[in-house]
């Protein structure tokens, strides 16, 4: 029952996004003129497109046509490449998934142990060093770190190609740029989650029963520290897509992020709406998954009772 309401809420969220995009499209003037240049398109062709993509009739009819089109994956034609917008986006997807996936691995592999170490050494020298590094990492903009890496590793040391796509050498710098920046933030979350878990009364009581520190960490601290991290991790991974828009531009990475920037510059609304809905869909889907994971991890949630 609760699962059903969650699903329903997800569908409603999606519908709200589709509607917002529709409103925005209509609010920006004649969408056909935004897609086609009227100077080199005949009036007849424009009318034909209007007909084809449902820009005729009352606004309500247009809305239903639009929702129907979206439902069938028909988002229109990209004016940058004159191809179907959906396939333009889809062909960029693997590059972005590769980048985001590797960066997420870097973030977790760096963030979890480092954050846990900082928490265990709460207030000590190691903790302060880690926190200072985290502040630096947070303050360092993506594009500055990216350009610094290019200057150092490509221009000066000539170790890695400064941009491009395909080989593992191309992947290193963008992944480091995104992964380390997010690791700086993630470390803080891990630290405070572990700190909170360490302060739990059940950890004290486990200690009083004579459990070893390692066992306590494994069985009492980690399961409790997981709960807040499960919520924050997808948000950070989601924000990697956003960071991708900058980093992909710096390193010439042919992913969705760079496509966003290019289509904003070209005002390619057809491509842009595909990206928006894709991002929205991903966020809503991950939120749903997080809810389920949370229920699995925390028996106190209502959803857990349901299962």
């Amino acid at each position: 029952m609760l699962l059903l309401t969650r699903l329903l809420r997800a569908v409603v969220s999606l519908w709200v996004i589709v509607t917002l995009v529709f409103v925005a499209l209509r609010a920006t003037g004649d969408p056909i003129l935004a897609i086609f240049n009227p100077d080199d398109t005949t009036q007849a062709a424009l009318d034909a497109y209007r007909e084809q993509w449902g820009y005729t009739g009352t606004i309500l009819q247009q809305y239903f046509t639009y929702v129907n089109n979206v439902f069938h994956g028909a988002f229109g034609i990209s004016n940058m490449s004159n191809r179907d917008a959906l396939s333009v986006v889809l062909e960029r997807l693997p590059a972005t998934l590769q980048l985001v996936g590797c960066s997420a691995v870097v973030m977790i592999v760096v963030g979890v142990p480092v954050g846990a170490l900082a928490a265990i050494d709460n207030g000590g020298r190691l903790d302060r060093t880690i926190m200072s590094l985290s502040t630096v990492g947070f303050a360092l903009p993506n594009f500055v770190l990216g350009l610094a890496l290019i200057l150092l590793l490509s221009v000066n040391l000539r170790l890695l190609p400064s941009n491009g796509y395909g080989s593992w050498q191309n992947l290193i710098m963008p992944v480091l740029t995104i992964g380390l920046a997010k690791a700086a933030i993630f470390t803080r979350f891990v630290r405070s989650a572990v700190l909170d878990a360490l302060r739990l009364s059940c950890v004290t009581s486990a200690r009083a029963r004579g459990l070893g520190e390692f066992q306590i960490f494994l069985h009492h601290v980690i399961p409790n520290a997981m709960l807040p991290l499960v919520t924050i991790t997808p948000l950070l991974v989601g924000s990697m897509i956003a960071a991708g828009s900058v980093v992909e531009s710096v390193f010439g990475w042919p992913g969705v992020g760079r496509l966003i920037v290019d289509s904003v510059a070209q005002r390619d609304l057809a491509v842009l709406q595909v990206i928006i809905m894709m991002v929205a869909f991903l966020m809503i889907a991950t939120n749903l998954i997080v809810d389920l994971a949370y229920a699995k991890l925390d028996p106190r949630t209502a959803l857990a009772h349901n299962n």
């Binding site: 739990l200 009364s201 059940c202 004290t204 009581s205 486990a206 069985h219 009492h220 399961p223 409790n224 709960l227 991890l297 925390d298 028996p299 106190r300």
Partner: peptide
Amino acid sequence: FQDPLAALNPVR
């Protein structure tokens, strides 16, 4: 302990 619910691990 004072609060038995807190002194037991809630997720196990």
